[in-house]
Design a protein around this nucleic acid. Structure first.
Length: 564
RNA sequence: GUCCCCGUAGUUCAAUGGAUAGAACACUAGCCUUCUAAGCUGGAUAUGCAGGUUCAAUUCCUGCCGGGGACACCA
């Protein structure tokens, strides 16, 4: 790999000039006028007792490599320019050889458990869930591209008073309707009754239903089961549109009992304590948290109980080396408490649990609240972006067959939506402005997809690709170099994005690569290049761009259509 | 009251402690007889305030101001 060659050359220059071995070398891509790579020499000044400029000068004088054509010392920076043909040859042959594996590291095997969806079975998914899902899938792919085995899971909150609320409302107002009879999507059907639940007149019935449920009442359990299945049918459809996949679904009703066992065990060990009213507590004040109730005085479990059981059973089942919970920022305290309790119980793997908290999605009117109907429904948004994309496609290609038009609009609409949600740092809150979310121009998913489709349409004219042993010195324009250097940095960006759980870095990268390509595209002809050699070199160049765009979009869970 | 996240251009967002803080939208002037104009080329504007650490701070530390979230025998 080229950057390694340059690093080696710098290392030996250090040796020759100063008999010194730096611990690590961080090369950056400077402004084009300075060169292709640069090394800031300031950090070495202290050890070498020389000015950064002096260090850079001496390194420049001692830097020998057949691929380096120019070295310069400016303001304490060592600037390096690579031979034109060399860059193209090394970068392009690697990308085209590796193809879909370019940017994928074959590093150590690690098993990562990822939880990225935790729906309630009393209402349909909303925009916040979409962010959660899109982020989770992107993370899964990002980590897989680092060589990790990722176990994708969701925890379904199918138990508790809120579930009984929709159930009781249905009992009272349902008239034996079903999603089939009314033609509604199952999750929306159930959600309708959750909204109809009346806090004043029905709360006692809901509490009673919960007691019956816990006692195993047959009728309640049967209805609960039926309604949950309606909801699951609905979720399945939404997940399919989003491309969400899970290796394993966990259900709260199955994990909370294990949580209770863990709590009694902890009580015996003296990690927890019992109050006079029989409630069970943990005292975390010594680490800056609070006292927390783990079991109510009536013996029933609380929210955290199921997460304790879930964590323990998942570790037992998967033996993960790391677990990541992709859950909203508002639950940060909950997870701090959860992890602290697990540590206190003596589970060593508790150190390996991370809460990746993502910011809320705000609407122009403020925070979303499902109880007040102030939500952006997931299915609605998905349908809307598809429709808008369809209108654009039809405007451009009125003659396109319907099936093809719908396929394209699905890719484009969802590409726009996913990109919109992923381009922001996960911890940042998103202010959802419908117009921006579904924009197809500017810094958007479709912009990247469009660059990809343009390349596809050029390459379609020219199959098969030219051989890889050609004259790459034809790729010496600023536009060529800009693209080559960007491609070269892709693996690094991908690993940074994975290590810091930041898919937004990929979004940024893809936009800048697309910009580099578009600029090139407007300035240089590919099929009508001045000569055959240039044409061949350019074909390989854009092929490599296409590969990287497709791989990068793939990490984000976004399709790369051949035509738009 | 305590804790967590966030304050960057008119707006929405970027920026492993490194050279002149990047994009996009909006606004504006141009570019389709030439590989897809969902595009390209120009044009103006920004690090909340006060200190500190550092050769170097949007980035790290402290305080203040402003916005959001959390701290239930809710989930």
């Amino acid at each position: 790999m080229l950057t390694l060659d340059v690093k080696e050359a710098i290392n030996s220059a250090f040796k020759k000039a100063f008999s010194y071995q730096p611990e690590s070398l961080e090369l950056v891509n400077p402004e084009p006028q300075f060169g292709d790579f640069a090394l800031a020499c300031h950090p070495f000044a202290k050890n070498l007792k020389l000015s950064p400029q002096e260090i850079a000068s001496r390194l420049a004088a001692n830097l020998i490599s057949k691929s380096i054509v120019k070295t310069e010392a400016v303001a304490g920076y060592l600037n390096i320019t690579i031979e034109a043909g060399r860059l193209g040859q090394e970068v392009l042959s690697e990308v085209i050889d590796k193809d879909k594996h370019f940017g994928v590291a074959k590093s150590k095997k690690e098993k990562i458990l990822l939880e990225y969806s935790s729906p309630n079975t009393n209402k349909p998914l909303h925009l916040g869930h979409i962010r959660n899902n899109v982020l989770g899938m992107a993370l899964a792919r990002l980590l897989e591209a680092r060589g990790a085995e990722v176990v994708k899971t969701q925890i379904i909150n199918d138990r508790g008073i809120h579930i009984m609320k929709s159930l009781v409302a249905y009992q009272k107002l349902g008239n034996n309707e079903t999603p089939e009879s009314t033609g509604e999507k199952g999750d929306h059907f159930v959600g309708r009754f959750y909204v109809l639940f009346n806090e004043e007149t029905m709360i006692d019935d809901a509490k009673e239903a919960l007691c019956k449920w816990e006692a195993g009442d047959k009728d309640i359990k049967a209805l609960w089961q039926t309604m949950n299945c309606w909801v699951y049918d609905g979720f399945k459809e939404t997940y399919k549109s989003l491309g969400s996949k899970f290796d394993k679904d966990y259900y709260e009703n199955a994990t909370y009992l294990l949580g209770k066992k863990i709590i009694s065990a902890g009580l015996k060990k003296g990690v927890f304590y019992k109050e006079a009213d029989n409630s069970i507590w943990v005292d975390l004040t010594d680490i800056g948290l609070d006292k927390k109730v783990l079991q109510r005085s009536d013996g029933t479990s609380v929210y955290i109980t199921q997460d304790l059981g879930l964590a323990v059973s998942r570790q037992k089942e998967w033996k993960f080396s790391r677990a990541i919970y992709v859950v909203g920022h508002e639950q940060e305290y909950h997870f701090r408490v959860l992890f602290a309790i697990l540590k206190r119980l003596g589970y060593k793997w508790a150190e390996k649990l991370h809460h990746l908290s993502y910011g809320l999605v705000f609407l122009p009117e403020g925070k979303m609240k499902s109880r007040e109907g102030k939500v952006v429904d997931a299915d609605d948004v998905i349908a809307e972006v598809k429709n808008l994309a369809l209108a654009e496609v039809k405007k451009r290609f009125p003659e396109l067959p319907n099936i093809e038009a719908h396929e394209r609009s699905k890719a484009i609409g969802l590409g726009a939506l996913k990109f919109f949600l992923l381009r922001v740092t996960p911890t940042q809150a998103i202010h959802f402005n419908p117009k921006e979310a579904i924009a197809f121009e500017g810094s958007t998913g479709p912009y990247v997809q469009y660059a990809h489709a343009r390349i596809a349409s050029i390459l379609k004219e020219e199959t098969p690709l030219p051989p890889k042993k050609i004259d790459f010195s034809k790729l010496a324009s600023p536009e060529d170099k800009n693209i080559l250097l960007k491609i070269l940095s892709y693996p690094k960006v991908a690993s940074q994005a994975a290590n810091s759980y930041s898919p937004n870095l990929i979004c940024d990268y893809l936009v800048s690569l697309s910009q580099a390509f578009n600029t090139f595209y407007h300035k240089h002809q590919v099929l009508r290049a001045p000569d055959e050699e240039t044409k061949h070199a350019r074909l390989l160049l854009i092929k490599a761009v296409q590969i990287v765009l497709r791989n990068g979009l793939g990490l984000l869970g976004i399709d790369a259509p051949e035509r738009m």
